[in-house]
Simulated scan of single mutants.
Amino acid sequence: MDNIIRRIRSFYPMSDEALQILVSCLKQHTFPAKTKLINAGKFDRQVYFIEEGITRSFIIHDGREITTWFSAEGDATCGSWDLYRNQKGFEYVETLEETIAFSISINALNKLYTQHIDIANWMRVLQQENFLWLQEMHINRLVLPVKDRYVRLVSKFPKLLQRVNLGYIASYLGTTLPTLSKIRSEVCAQISSNDLSADATPSLSIRSVT
C-alpha cells in the first residue's frame, strides 16, 4: 500500500496511529481493465484508493461518453454525489488497466472523521486540493486554447499518454481526436526542434511549461 500511504502523507502529516486505523478499515480488490467501479444512476457507497492502475471518470451525454477525470496510483475515486449528498450520481468510473484498489464505505469513512482528527484533516486538505485543481481546469477551459491545455496536462501528468487512449484525452480536453492528434504532432515536432538547437527558446514545449 506504499503508493496510497505516500499520497496520504503528501497531503497531510497523518500520525502512525491514525494511519493504521484507516488502513485497517480498507478492503483490497483487483479489478480487470474495463471494470465499472461507479455507475451513474446507482448508489455506490464506496471510496476507492488506487495502489496500482488507472481509472477514467466519464458522463454520457446524447449517447456520447465525455471524460471528466483520470485517477492513478495514490489517488482516490468515488461518486461525488454519493459522498457529499447521499444521492445517486451521474458519473461512471471504470478501470483502464488491471487495477489494485482498496475500498472503504462512505459510512465508515464518515465515522472515522468524527473519531480521529488526523483523518478528518487529511480529507479536508485533499478536498481543498481537488477543488483548486477543478477551479484551475475550469478557468483554463475558458481562457486557454486546446494546445496550451494539452501541454499543461502532459506536463503535470507526463505518463498519461503512455497509459490512456488518446481519444479519452481528447474528450477530457473538450476537443476531437483528429484535432488532438494534430496538436500532439506539432508539440512533438517543436520538442525535437528545441532539442536540436541549444540556443532555441522554447515557447510551448512540455518541458518549459510551469
Rank of each mutant, 00 (worst) to 15 (best):
D82W: 07
V47W: 06
L177H: 01
N194G: 07
Y168D: 12
T67D: 07
D82R: 06
A101T: 13
S181F: 02
N107A: 12
L109D: 06
E65H: 05
P158A: 00
I60P: 06
G89K: 03
R163D: 10
R207Q: 14
N86E: 11
K156F: 13
M1P: 10
K147A: 11
E91Q: 12
E186C: 02
Q46R: 13
A200L: 12
K156G: 03
S57L: 01
V47G: 04
V143I: 15
I54Y: 01
L196F: 08
M1Q: 11
V125Y: 12
I8H: 13
K27G: 02
N194V: 14
M137D: 08
K36S: 14
S10I: 02
E186A: 11
N110M: 03
D44W: 10
Y150W: 04
F131I: 12
D118S: 10
Y172V: 03
I106P: 01
G174Q: 03
S105T: 15
E52P: 00
R7L: 09
L180P: 00
P145F: 00
A72T: 09
A198N: 08
S197I: 06
R207P: 01
R7Q: 14
Y172T: 00
S208G: 08
R7V: 03
Q28V: 05
N130H: 11
H61S: 11
R9E: 08
K88I: 10
E97R: 05
I50F: 07
E17H: 14
M1S: 13
S155W: 02
A170R: 01
G89I: 02
S192R: 13
D16K: 11
E136Q: 14
E136W: 03
L161M: 15
V146G: 04
F11D: 11
Q128N: 06
T30F: 07
R124S: 05
V125D: 04
E97S: 09
A76Y: 05
A33T: 01
S24E: 11
T95R: 01
A101Y: 12
D75G: 04
Q20F: 00
L19I: 06
L109H: 08
H29N: 12
S203C: 04
T176P: 10
Q128V: 07
S171M: 13
G63M: 12
T77R: 05
L126N: 13
V164A: 14
S192W: 06
E51A: 13
S193K: 15
S192F: 09
V125P: 06
Y168R: 04
F131N: 10
V93M: 06
S193G: 14
N140D: 15
M14E: 08
A120H: 11
